[in-house]
């Protein structure tokens, strides 16, 4: 009876081993392969050793097999993790159809840590000509449109001004006429990855950050660039 059980366990183990080894040849990149191989081969080998243990019973052979099972269960996933990390750090690319790369993202930083707090704003009733002058003078490309009480009602950028100047005369217009009224606003504790995602879609160059409807800061593409480069600025300057 024990013989049948142990041989069955070993056979199943062999099956898993072969599946795992086919996996390391068929799957597309090192991370997928590691996943397949480590799971299947660890389980397969543990089943083989368990079969041996059942066959040998309580004897030096059986006890050593059990010890080996515990040992492989601990070490094999550990070394696979270390290897995956090493592969990632050494720059091995993910398969092109991999859907997301959680490990590669910028670590948890909130909008509050990145945003510029002294924002240049404009009121909706300012003449558009003044707003144009202000943008050029301050060397910025856009600014939030803010009511006197601090509430955001829109955003005005170079693009809005140029669009408006194509349609009608900017001399007589007010900021209210040209601004984009649907500003996407984020709260200060938003994860910076979400904002980076919005900025990279190409529609916006900057997003206002507001708390309870009041403007508290602004995050531009340049601010995201700053967290991406931080620490290496001096080295690059020397070269």
């Amino acid at each position: 009876m024990t013989e049948i059980i142990s041989y069955t366990a070993i056979t199943i183990g062999m099956f898993f081993n072969i599946v795992g080894c086919i996996g390391i040849n068929r799957l597309p990149d090192v991370y997928n392969r590691l996943q397949a191989a480590t799971k299947c081969v660890t389980m397969g080998t543990c089943l083989i050793l368990l079969g041996i243990m059942i066959h040998a019973g309580i004897s030096p052979l059986g006890i050593k097999a059990l010890l080996c099972v515990v040992f492989i269960l601990v070490t094999s996933p550990t070394s696979a993790h270390a290897l995956a990390r090493g592969a990632y750090k050494s720059g091995v690319k993910l398969w092109k159809k991999s859907c997301c790369d959680q490990y590669g993202k910028v670590s948890l930083i909130n909008a509050h840590d990145v945003m510029k707090k002294d924002v240049i704003t404009v009121s909706p009733d300012t003449p558009l000509q003044d707003a144009v002058d202000l943008l050029v003078e301050m060397k910025i490309t856009g600014m939030p449109v803010v009511e006197p009480d601090g509430g955001i009602i829109g955003i005005i950028s170079e693009k809005d001004m140029i669009d408006y100047s194509n349609k009608s005369n900017i001399k007589t217009a007010k900021v209210r006429d040209a601004m984009s009224a649907k500003a996407t606003v984020f709260s200060p504790d938003t994860d910076i990855n979400i904002i980076a995602g919005v900025l990279s879609t190409g529609k916006f160059r900057r997003v206002p950050i507001a708390e309870n409807g009041k403007l508290v800061g602004i995050v531009s593409r340049r601010d995201i660039m700053h967290i991406l480069t931080s620490g290496k600025k001096k080295e690059a300057g020397k070269k």
Binding site: G13, I24, V30, R33, L34, G44, I52, S76
Partner: peptide, 24 residues
């Protein structure tokens, strides 16, 4: 290189299986 390293890692575990079958 990580692909090769992984192959060696898995080969090591397979060798453990070999030893087990020899013991059997």
């Amino acid at each position: 290189p990580p692909d090769r390293a992984m192959g060696i890692d898995i080969l090591g575990i397979i060798v453990v299986g070999f030893c087990a079958v020899s013991a059997l």
